[in-house]
């Protein structure tokens, strides 16, 4: 029994231990790393990324993949900005209406994604990749390649208003992470993601409407991408067709580093939170300890491999693809 416990525990806590080890490592090299200001910096960088990663976590838990995040984030960010400006340009003057609007758009992107994937029986990799093109393309079309700015102080308070040193958006993200965890563990939908990821055919045979669960999963992911899009706007004060660029690989990397299995059914929101923190700590740490620019991408790669190697349960894997 003790053997069982230690092994289970080791697998469960490995990503967190990797995170702690990284923090200790960077602090040892440069004590400035371990400062509240720096943590705030990491948190701001991680906030939109975490929303994207949580969105895609639901999909990966189902054993599918979603690569539409770049297009979805760009499109929702751009539409949010336009709606916000059109509705008066400030939160107080009706701009707040743009928030539910963006969420709906995100959900719609996810819905189309899910419908194309499920109804046309196109693997999610391709369906979502193509939808990502469409999303980015739509963002290009709407903006005509321009940048849309938002200068409402109330909305930008998400970044500028700090409580205990951390900007408001960090708290928003923490609350949303809890919400995601709650969905995952305490709602039928969340548990059904695990059922589909653990054994789709069995779930179907048990009378579960697998197709509906899939589609709903993509909708949920789309809503989280929309949140990420709005946070990006709050962070940068602007939106354009490349607002969502670079989210795809980094978010999936984070999810996997946190210990969510790409083949589905294993891991969850907390893994993703830890994974996103690992990736962002690595990114930030490399700057703080003063590594030259050009080393950073390679270094990130090596550290990510190290993190995955340390946090996977090798005994249960016969092979990986």
């Amino acid at each position: 029994m003790t053997r069982f416990l230690t092994r289970e525990a080791a697998i469960r806590w490995a990503p967190l231990l990797v995170l702690i080890a990284l923090v200790i490592l960077f602090t040892a090299i440069n004590p400035d790393f371990f400062a509240q200001r720096n943590f705030a910096r990491i948190a701001i960088a991680a906030a939109p990324a975490l929303m994207v990663a949580i969105g895609v976590t639901f999909i990966i838990v189902m054993g599918s993949i979603d690569l539409s995040m770049e297009g979805a984030v760009s499109l929702t960010a751009v539409l949010f900005c336009f709606a916000f400006l059109w509705l008066g340009g400030t939160l107080a003057a009706g701009g707040w209406l743009a928030i539910p609007l963006a969420l709906i758009v995100g959900g719609l992107i996810g819905l189309i994604n899910g419908l194309v994937h499920v109804k046309l029986r196109i693997p999610s990799f391709m369906a979502s990749l193509a939808m990502g093109f469409v999303g980015t393309g739509a963002a290009v079309l709407i903006t005509g390649g321009d940048i849309v700015r938002i200068e409402d102080d109330t909305f930008r308070a998400l970044l500028t208003w700090r409580i205990a040193g951390f900007p408001l958006m960090v708290y928003v993200v923490v609350i949303l992470a809890f919400l995601a965890w709650f969905i995952q563990n305490h709602t039928t939908l969340g548990r059904n993601f695990y059922a589909v990821g653990g054994g789709e055919e069995l779930a179907h045979a048990s009378g579960l409407n697998v197709r509906r669960v899939r589609i709903t999963g993509f909708v949920l992911a789309g809503v989280f991408y929309a949140i990420a899009g709005m946070l990006q706007v709050a962070k940068l004060g602007q939106a354009e067709s490349v607002t969502g660029a670079n989210f795809m690989f980094i978010s999936i990397t984070s999810v996997v580093v946190g210990g969510v299995a790409l083949w589905g059914g294993i891991g969850g929101v907390w893994n993703t939170v830890v994974g996103v923190l690992i990736v962002n700590v690595i990114n930030n740490g490399m700057v703080v300890i003063g590594l030259p620019d050009y080393v950073q991408d390679g270094m990130l790669g090596l550290l990510v491999i190290l993190a995955v190697v340390l946090s996977t349960d090798r005994r249960n894997i016969s092979f990986v693809k």
Binding site: T253, D297, G298, M299, G301, I305, V309, T312, I317
Partner: peptide, 15 residues
């Protein structure tokens, strides 16, 4: 090392 190729090749790409 049992790292999914999605991650390993991405990392080598970074390299």
């Amino acid at each position: 090392l049992f790292v999914p190729s999605f991650i390993s090749t991405l990392a080598v790409g970074g390299l």
